[in-house]
Write a protein that binds this DNA or RNA. Structure first.
Lengths: 316, 316
DNA sequence: CAGAATACTTGACAATGTCAACAATATAGT
DNA sequence: ACTATATTGTTGACATTGTCAAGTATTCTG
């Protein structure tokens, strides 16, 4: 915890510097830094009220009022009367839009210059790191999630995350990590396109969970390695992953969908029940170190109705 | 690239807000924000010159001079004459140290409050994400690296990173990713403590590279999966990993250390040559999709001299 | 040793941010 | 409908923060 605080403070000092360097490029331009911030906010939330601007930027109301008067004098904005006669909705003029475009382009260039020397992988890593930091720091971020098929590197990342999370929450050790490695590697090795799939849920490009479907032969499919990142819980991502998986299985004509899970994973059990799975077997095993109660669940699939395809499931 | 710029700018706005909220906690305290920044810098780099402060914080020289005069009046600092009579080296007084301690504690508390609701795994993830972002953004950071044995989650992460990096740099596809998964999982499954090991190089807690040593039987050890992250190259991390590995092999009494590598990996070949490896076999294989020339290298190990142990190698 | 560079200070001023008072309007409770 | 209360936006007064250029004392360089 102390290390974490020190690291964050160190990053804070670093980023303050960096932001200062980026901002310095506006000095001497048409707009000052607070003006630029305000103009950006106006352009993004048009039409907005002075009050909304003040709140979202954390600026003083009087200060905002004065800057807006300046903008009006420069011909960047127009303020008329709203339905609520206290407010004066703000709209950008053509000149205002031009001023914004100029500032916007400069800011883009400044950032572009900063990451120009990074190769594509490094750029992806950077975006991922920043998005991850933000998701962890700001639980109120409400960006939605998306689900995509797996790509290079996902197998290892999924195995790593599940191993770490289960080690932390349930103390499952090397046994589980080996199983994770074996299952993900075997999936990749034997992958049957069109019959099997692994999906990854993402929030702002950050991996938020995953699920596998494998072909067990004889018309039976198996659902495996479902998980959702702690930071992403409570958004029904697990539901969406299971729906995607069931939709695919039904679509491809599988007769049953089976899964193994652990009795202690309460959230997962409720999820499976909700989706129509039924428990068909219970057995204690020692795969993860200490004895653990495993359960087998099964879902009988109706033949494809032509209504709910995997694609549709993705869109819900 | 455009997405990357948009993401970074979005993070920028977010972090500006966050930093503003953290800073707001100093208002009304004994020191103002720029004073706090300056005081922090003084405390960390004591004794320092006004010039150094001005440069490292990017503040105006006159501004710094005035704040320092204020600090002197408050009895926080003493300025005497240096060997260079133009400078006036700054030292904190007891009162200054107290003032700093108070501010420092407040800042710590502010950050602690921000991450209090995060569980330990999430805190680690956050620190990792921030450190990674910093390493990518600021190539001049010169923090050193350290080497540690593997821990939970390393196998998957190593497999993922190598798969992604080689896919990007050489186009090696699923074949390589499967090999990565198999090798890392097999290592974990058959791990013989004391005879085998995997080491991870870290910079500021961020994985910067890794290397494996496995027991091949008959007194032969095998070096596997050496890699160094692009952002970490040029710091002799590869050298240190190979040295660690050779030291361990020698220490444990192995007679030979063998490795497979690919002819196109020039940097690695030079590294192996430098450490005394000799190429003993060349063969084209098709494991990674397109045909690739693989090479076997070997190092004959002298019996342990008692001088260079694995522990010593770690400390270089 | 002259000229250039460096470390620091100071005056003048511009930009940025804060606070409280106030007018106009809206809302909630009776 | 009426009153107390809250909200939106404006303004004056002011404090803080940041910038620029000129100037002094000292050191460095050829």
């Amino acid at each position: 915890m102390n290390d974490a605080i020190a690291s964050i403070r160190s990053f804070n000092r670093f980023y303050t510097q960096l932001a200062g360097v980026l901002d310095a490029r506006f000095l001497g331009s048409e707009a000052t830094l607070p003006e630029a911030r305000l103009l950006f906010e106006i352009a993004v939330n048009e039409p907005g009220s002075a009050n909304a601007l003040q709140a979202s930027l954390g600026m003083d109301a009087g200060y905002v009022s004065r800057i807006l008067t300046r903008f009006e004098k420069r011909g960047w904005i127009i303020r008329d009367r709203g339905t609520d006669a206290r407010t004066r909705p703000i709209r950008l003029t053509e000149a205002g839009r031009d001023a914004f475009a100029l500032l916007d382009a400069r800011q883009r260039d400044a950032v572009a210059g900063m990451i120009a020397r990074l190769d594509p992988v490094a750029q992806t890593d950077l975006v991922d790191a920043l998005a991850r930091a933000r998701l962890l720091l700001d639980p109120t971020t409400t960006s939605g999630f998306s689900i995509r098929p797996f790509r290079t590197g996902d197998m290892g990342r999924i195995a790593a995350r599940q191993s770490i999370l289960y080690a932390d929450s349930h103390g499952w050790g090397r046994g589980l990590e080996v199983v994770e490695g074996e299952v993900t590697t075997a999936f990749l090795h034997n992958f049957k396109p069109g019959r099997e799939q692994c999906w990854v849920a993402e929030i702002d490009g950050v991996m938020a969970g995953s699920i596998f479907l494998t072909d067990e032969g004889g018309g039976n499919a198996r659902l495996r390695l479902l998980y959702v990142e702690p930071f992403a819980r409570g958004r029904r991502i697990g539901d969406a992953l299971v729906t995607t998986c069931i939709g695919f299985a039904r679509d491809k004509g599988y007769a049953t969908l089976t899964l193994w899970t652990q009795a202690v994973l309460e959230t997962a059990r409720r999820l499976y029940t909700r989706h129509g799975f039924e428990r068909i077997e219970t057995a204690v095993h020692h795969d993860f170190g200490e004895p653990v109660t495993g359960e087998r669940w099964q879902l009988r699939l109706a033949p494809p109705s032509g209504r709910e395809t995997a694609q549709e499931a993705l869109e819900t």
